[in-house]
Design a protein around this nucleic acid. Sequence first.
DNA 1: CCTACCGATCGGTAGG
DNA 2: CCTACCGATCGGTAGG
Lengths: 209, 209
Amino acid sequence: MTTEARAPGRPPGLTGEDLLAVARDVFLERGYGGASMEEVARRARISKASLYREQPSKSALYEAVVRHWASAGRNAMRPALERLLAADDLRQGLADLAETMRFGILSEPVLAMRRLVTAEAVTQPEVARMYLEESWNANIRNLAEALQTVAARHGLQMDEADAAAADFTWLVIGAPLNARLLAGDVDASPVDRAVDLFLAGYRRRRAAR
Amino acid sequence: MTTEARAPGRPPGLTGEDLLAVARDVFLERGYGGASMEEVARRARISKASLYREQPSKSALYEAVVRHWASAGRNAMRPALERLLAADDLRQGLADLAETMRFGILSEPVLAMRRLVTAEAVTQPEVARMYLEESWNANIRNLAEALQTVAARHGLQMDEADAAAADFTWLVIGAPLNARLLAGDVDASPVDRAVDLFLAGYRRRRAAR
DNA sequence: CCTACCGATCGGTAGG
DNA sequence: CCTACCGATCGGTAGG
């Protein structure tokens, strides 16, 4: 069979979430300004008129794309956090988590989405704020919860779990994220340094202020 | 006097570094795609034809702007590092340095330049790479050198000073930089947490792998 | 140094 | 009659 079966009168092109996936690819490849509604329509095999009936404007399409992406990534770390909670060796568990975080956050599509949303934060701040809250802070809070559990089990001093989750995250991905965003470099530094520094800082109560 | 004295035949508008400053403002306000050569020319009080005689293309103007900025920021941290080296109290010295770093890196123009260069890293990667090397990595190396000196004086264990400088930097600015880039939030968390974690990690030799 | 203008393309919408 | 969709073109503006 060379043609798909389809009901008469049904649209042959993409709509709904399939359309959002196509639009996402165009935005990630070209940036907001470089993306044209015509290319989105062409790749989705629909007319521009049909595209505008699905989304009333380019900015509305952009917001829908980011919202769908953020929703999908909201609990991206959950499996890795389950593995951390199940790990006997805390240090090894944190190192595995760190590797997973690097692999995910430094992947090309995630980097491209960060570039896109950051660049458009000036003109569409509410979209950037939604992305930060739904996609990033939600994951930080999940991480904080898991860290609090393993801290209690392994006798770590962790009064402010959210801050500790941020510390861990930025020790692990700060430098390579910066390098990849700006230069595409693949960072080769082992995660063990970050994990050791984190553990050293939280193993004993830090000096009072 | 209502008019400035000027030599006959001299251009009334801006050229050279003054032109780059005007172009920088336009790029930072509008982004690369949103910046028009016409607006740059208008603000510099020159014609578009004159602008194109100074810079052969929009991308050449952009590269000149970023290069000039990076060159100016290359040793931005030097005064703060001198104060660290002169500090008696290491913890207080690091806290002061951390405040200075936050104030500088999280300032609006520096954030806007980061947004701009990051967004254009896809289409003009060599400019982004130059920015990373001249403006960021140069400062990290200056910080590493200073940290090595104070580490030796205060008995810290610091085998890889570049990595330690990156650790310190991302502990101090990672979370607030992310929040400000995406949501414009002003972070209120004290720098003391980051400094204490850093010191705890480097005060004793970390566990062998 | 400027006005005028080009070929191309943008986001968005018309009639049928 | 309906829904889904098309070719053509609108007014403005971009880099050059």
